[in-house]
Design a protein around this nucleic acid. Structure first.
Length: 466
RNA sequence: GACCCCGUCGUCUAGAGGCCUAGGACUCCACUCUUUCACAGUGGCAACACGGGUUCGAACCCCGUCGGGGUCGCCA
């Protein structure tokens, strides 16, 4: 059997962290088994679905590099097919028309709640004579839920979950306007698309019982269900708008790398022994539903940052330059010139060691392309004022005379000069850093000098000495 | 409220009856390295929710309590 999974978001908002992880698990599971990963947009609620949301979801998935197989399925396009299925159920006596008004339903629920009874539709139209139908009321179609026995979901993550059937009321299949509901559409689509494994959030667990009843009524084979625990905010509550920066796109904007995001999301609810840094290939090889945890987890930015820093240090300089270039260009007011890009590329090795996201990387990289004369920050200015300028002045000729403007030679020279001046290396290196970078924190100063080159280095030096 | 799920360091987790005086990672602290900041390395703080069973033996099995979460829509 070829494994077919799907990610089925509803396009009512952006792709959030929880959805992203669901997508990741589905993707990983499919890739692990050499199967298919399908994407289906659950847009049966016409009022709330938007094209912008669809675009945002696709965009988020693409950023995370979770590629789907085949065409994107838009659920609503199958409305006719879903309607047919519902009518078939009606003909088979497995569904019926219900003429309850919304007011009636609200009242029913309120009374049930007040009396402490389970809140659900009481099935009042289930066996009623259709001749009783009030005139002018468009009925909904409800599914005749088995009233006795229990429904057992053998969940791939949660294990067997039993729900007594009397707990489940007769769900609506077709709305009064004839459009299918989600409950109907998922079942039909999952069947039609040959979905073998339904991997989704825990919040769908009870839905699985209802859906399983529909599968049975239709005589269709049940897919394997796996309900993964939800991700909560740092405060332990369900992820919501209060927890800012939920959209995966927001993480991209905050300078996170997709591979870091994938690694982080993977470790939320899933583990492979003590492994922490897991490449995507390795994840595909190792991933399985059986090792998915059962308890919800909290989103922890610190860990994400740490992982992002790790992947940043691994990233190719050229790629990082590309990521950093737009923001730098904006700050500079012009698109980067070839020599600037070259300088950034050369400096990236030292730069990427010191940033945990590309925003920080951008800030740290700025001095390489900044126009002279550089502005010194407070601490840097102090370094120069506290005798630093004099010491630099004293070694300036030695720089001028240096043969090879390369890191080892530069370092040797400064060490030599420090000894000659009878000062510590730092007393020379720090003012140098202040003059060349405008800051007291930067990559190794000899690295910086080599990247900057003789001409630029001396020019920056003179800016502060003159 | 009813039903369902969950409960190991602050966080993510390993653990599938003896290998556990509970391991790793992040955070935090100290030290080492060091021209700064980082990185890296070393060390440290820190957990089996509670109460009963079962068993020679329980973080692991059972029951209860408490706590957290989810679902109860003509939303998905």
């Amino acid at each position: 059997m070829t494994v077919v999974t799907r990610f089925a978001p509803s396009p009512t908002g952006y792709l959030h962290i929880g959805g992203a992880r669901t997508a990741l698990f589905n993707w990983l599971f499919a890739r692990h088994h050499g199967g298919k990963f399908r994407l289906r947009i659950e847009d049966t609620d016409r009022k709330r679905s938007t094209d912008e949301a669809v675009a945002a979801i696709l965009d988020g998935l693409q950023w995370l590099e979770l590629d789907w197989d085949g065409e994107v399925v838009h659920q609503f396009e199958g409305a006719d097919r879903h309607g047919e299925i519902a009518r078939g159920l009606l003909d088979a006596g497995k569904a019926y028309h219900c003429y309850c008004s919304k007011e009636e339903l609200t009242e029913m629920r309120e009374r049930a709640r007040a009396e402490g009874r389970p809140v659900r539709y009481d099935g009042r139209w289930r066996d009623r004579d259709p001749a009783d139908a009030p005139a002018g009321v468009e009925p909904v179609v409800r599914f005749k839920t088995p009233s006795e026995g229990e429904t057992v979901i053998n969940d791939g993550v949660q294990g067997p979950v039993r729900v007594t059937n009397e707990q489940l009321d007769d769900m609506i299949l077709l709305r009064a306007d004839g459009t299918p509901t989600y409950m109907l559409s998922v079942v039909v689509d999952d069947h039609d698309m040959g979905i073998t494994h339904v991997v989704r959030g825990d919040d769908h667990l009870t839905n699985a019982a209802r859906q399983s009843q529909l599968f049975h009524a239709l005589g269709w084979e049940l897919p394997n269900f796996a309900h993964i625990p939800l991700i909560h905010g740092a405060d332990g509550a369900k992820l919501s708008k209060r927890h800012d920066a939920l959209a995966v796109g927001a993480y991209r904007d905050m300078g996170y790398l997709p591979e870091a995001m994938r690694n982080y999301l993977l470790r939320l609810g899933w583990a492979h022994g003590d492994e922490e840094i897991i490449s995507t290939d390795q994840a595909i090889a190792w991933f399985g539903l059986d090792t998915v945890g059962r308890s919800p987890s909290r989103f922890d930015t610190d860990k994400l940052d740490n992982l992002n820093g790790h992947y940043l240090r691994q990233a190719e300089p050229a790629r990082l330059v590309e990521l950093v270039a737009p923001a730098l260009a904006e700050r500079l007011g012009h698109t980067l010139e070839p020599n600037e890009i070259e300088r950034l590329s050369a400096g990236m090795n030292g730069l990427r060691e010191r940033a945990k996201n590309t925003l920080e990387l951008t800030d740290n990289a700025y001095f390489y392309v900044a126009k002279r004369p550089l502005k010194q920050d407070g601490k840097a200015a102090r370094q120069l004022a506290d005798g630093g300028r004099e010491r630099l002045l004293a070694i300036r000729p030695a720089f001028e005379a240096l043969d090879k403007w390369e890191e080892p030679a530069l370092e040797a020279l400064v060490r030599e000069q420090a000894e000659a001046q009878g000062c510590k290396l730092g007393e020379l290196a720090q003012p140098l850093r202040a003059a060349l970078t405008g800051s007291t924190r930067s990559p190794g100063i000899f690295d910086v000098m080599a990247v900057l080159g003789r001409e630029e280095s001396l020019a920056r030096l003179d800016d502060t000495l003159g």
